[in-house]
């Protein structure tokens, strides 16, 4: 019989006490793994060549795929925030494609059990597109930091608060609900907006072709109004 080089440790019994921190961290890691896996599957299905075009049907399809994977996961608002930061860590998630990532995050928010979700994203280097897509009635999503293009498109009655700036096409196609952007907003704001309100704390760079709804700039109603024309830079 070969010499057992570890023989003296044979009787060592490490009293592994269950430490709550380990449990919490382990659970969070496990959830994150599943969320990450869902995102990777979404990319596999919807962005095979790592290219994704923002079109009405691609958005709808991607959202449906995202919902399919999310349904199986039990997660919290903090998990969504962690996922947003994980997206920037290339070691953990290899590809950040802004479109599908935004759709996926929106699906996560819409499906979360919490009614109010706070995402502290101010240190995030990337501005996430499409955040708040189809935010349903009764949900409030607060984003600390800036958001990218297509913020809050197609909102379905929910309330989206952006503590920073948001880029172009914000609130496009929204039906009802409210978008509050504390700082400035880009071009095409409210394009094909059918209802609801957009409140901007700073400047609106340009309005889109609005069908219905209201847009406020520094508490002043700018749509409907006389002086405003679509995409006029002022």
């Amino acid at each position: 019989m070969t010499q057992n080089p570890f023989e003296e440790f044979q009787s060592f019994q490490y009293r592994k006490t269950s430490f709550p921190l380990d449990r919490i961290v382990h659970t969070a890691e496990a959830v994150m793994d599943r969320i990450r896996l869902g995102y990777e599957k979404l990319l596999e299905e919807e962005a095979k060549e790592l290219v994704w075009m923002v079109q009405y049907n691609t958005i709808i399809k991607a959202y449906e795929v995202a919902e399919k994977y999310i349904k199986e996961i039990d997660y919290s608002a903090e998990d969504i925030e962690d996922f947003c930061f994980a997206l920037e860590n290339t070691q953990r998630i290899p590809y950040l494609i802004p479109g599908p990532a935004g759709i996926y995050i929106s699906a996560l928010c819409n499906d979360a059990r919490e009614e109010e979700i706070v995402l502290k994203l101010s240190e995030l280097k990337t501005e996430i597109n499409l955040i708040g897509f189809r935010l349903p009635k009764g949900k409030r999503l607060m984003v600390e930091g800036d958001t990218g293009d297509f913020t809050g498109i197609g909102i379905e009655g929910g309330e989206l608060v952006v503590e920073g700036n948001s880029k172009n096409w914000t609130g496009a196609g929204m039906r009802s609900g409210k978008i509050c952007v504390k700082k400035n907003i880009g071009l095409h704001t409210g394009e094909w907006m059918m209802g609801g309100e957009i409140h901007v704390g700073g400047r609106v760079r340009g309005l889109g072709n609005i069908v219905d709804g209201k847009v406020y700039e520094r508490e002043k109603l700018v749509y409907p109004g006389k002086a405003r024309y679509p995409n006029v830079y002022y």
Binding site: F19, P20, L21, I24, V25, A28, E78
Partner: peptide
């Protein structure tokens, strides 16, 4: 929360929700 030991801390109603949320976030840090 992370030690699993009661230290006799509870938040009053006024700011309890915000503090609870902070604690929840902090507890997830490895």
């Amino acid at each position: 929360r992370i030690w699993g030991i009661d230290l006799g801390v509870s938040f009053s109603n006024s700011d309890g929700k915000g503090s609870e949320e902070v604690v929840r976030r902090l507890a997830r840090i490895p």
